[in-house]
Amino acid sequence: MASESHKTDKERFEEEVLQFLNGLYGYALHLTRNPEDACDLVQETYARAFKAWKQYTLGTNAKAWLFAILRNTFLNQRRSTKRRPTEVPCDWVDELPREDVPQLLRFGPDPYDKFLNDLLAENIEEGLALLPETFRSAVVLCDVEGFSYKEIAEILDIPIGTVRSRIHRGRARLRELLEKWYLEGEGELGS
């Protein structure tokens, strides 16, 4: 095993950035909604990251750096292929209440636990897919990947206030959709 000072670029790269592979793959899946495209996107992300690795400064946030590369790569590919994902119109954004406490209290604690336990990954993915990309990204980066608002602002290249608003509204909309499907299904969620 190489000592710290004798590690090659490849060894440092593998050690410091491959640890984020699972998270990057998950985020890529949310962006592309297709496992094959997600794999291609992650591979391209790592190829770009490896090329830029020598300019990368140790001690900076490698995880946020990689997620930003992945998202920029995705946006560039989408632009170049002129493929746009199917997204619902965003009229709901302005209609959302400032906070969504009534929904949170609608079930009470025990039925709410049942609702949460009945949720499937497919339900959440379907709900997220109906959010505009920036809202989906903000929610996934915060709630799944655990990034701070500041890190998300850097990854998405938007102000922190906008991140906050997208997380609030994206979460509220996602939960609203899931609860609606749950109540319509009389306590069942289809996969």
Partner: peptide, 29 residues
């Protein structure tokens, strides 16, 4: 309820990348 929702989303959406993807990245580097 909000904590529960976040935690459920996080647990359900945590992914594991396919081994072939990991191998392919290692091979390319």
């Amino acid at each position: 309820n909000m904590h529960g929702f976040r935690s459920r989303v996080r647990n359900l959406l945590k992914m594991t990348a396919p081994q072939e993807l990991r191998d392919s990245i290692l091979m390319k580097t």
